[in-house]
């Protein structure tokens, strides 16, 4: 009861919190991140629409690495382990996370999977997120970088429609470039302009997993960024 005036009202006590609602996810993500960095593992959270070519990007990446032992992948899907199976066939040690109804991976799912994946000698870990341009961007997994695969068939204004994911991206892989001759109405400048309005420092690599065009640029970017991370950890 109110002790001040005897009005009979109950007391309402406000608690000022200002806490991040996803604090628990973020702290697990930080734990994952530390684990990766200490082991010299550069981790890519690979996101994009269903069918944007995420798995094909990783297959092409595997072709560029002579020693597949340096690569590992975790593939998230609502159902099936088809992507993980494709990656294993491509020579990448992989495991699948079947999320059931969940439209994204979270840090806890990745953490759980780390106990089942041998990361000995691995330099690059790819976390292929659930195909979805919205939800995966919300959850930190402990990755070194966010990469978005956007295929040229998806429409020039896709970045404008899904700004969150691009705002958080370190790199956009513009995929399926080999299809361009069949897409007379696709304007590459319009895609670039759309990305520049939602991504503050737009890095874009054009590639085609079909004929491996541009894949060398992507692999060079990965190696450069990993070297910078290793340097940062050593200097710390």
């Amino acid at each position: 009861m109110c002790q001040d005036c005897g009005c009979g009202d109950t007391n309402l006590v406000p608690l000022e919190l200002q806490t991040r609602i996803l604090a628990r996810n973020d702290s697990t993500a930080e734990h994952n991140r530390q684990h990766f960095r200490e082991r010299g593992i550069f981790t890519v959270n690979l996101m994009g629409s269903p069918g944007s070519g995420k798995t094909a990007v990783l297959e092409a990446t595997a072709r560029m690495f002579k020693n597949g032992r340096r690569l590992a992948a975790i593939a998230g899907d609502l159902a099936t382990d088809n992507d993980a199976a494709r990656l294993v066939r491509a020579g990448i040690r992989s495991c699948a996370i079947e999320t059931g109804q969940a439209c994204h991976l979270d840090a806890e799912m990745v953490h759980h999977e780390l106990h089942h994946l041998d990361l000995e000698g691995v330099e690059f870990l790819f976390i292929e997120n659930v195909g979805n341009l919205v939800c995966p961007a919300v959850y930190d997994l402990g990755q070194s970088v966010n990469v978005v695969a956007l295929s040229v068939t998806e429409g020039e204004d896709k970045p404008l429609k899904y700004p969150t994911m691009f705002a958080k991206a370190d790199l956009v892989l513009l995929t399926k470039l080999d299809l361009l001759p069949h897409l007379p109405n696709v304007d590459m400048t319009a895609i670039r302009n759309a990305i520049a309005k939602v991504m503050p420092d737009p890095h874009i690599i054009r590639m085609s997993a079909q004929d491996d065009a541009g894949v060398d640029g992507w692999v060079a970017w990965l190696r450069e960024r990993r070297a910078a991370q290793v340097h940062e950890v050593v200097s710390a």
Partner: peptide, 21 residues
């Protein structure tokens, strides 16, 4: 310079009100 996001990515619990007897 690339811009930075000064606001707009919050997912924050600001406050709760408790009724106490």
């Amino acid at each position: 310079e690339p811009a930075f996001m000064a606001a707009g990515d919050e997912i924050i619990l600001q406050r709760v009100e408790l009724e106490v007897a």
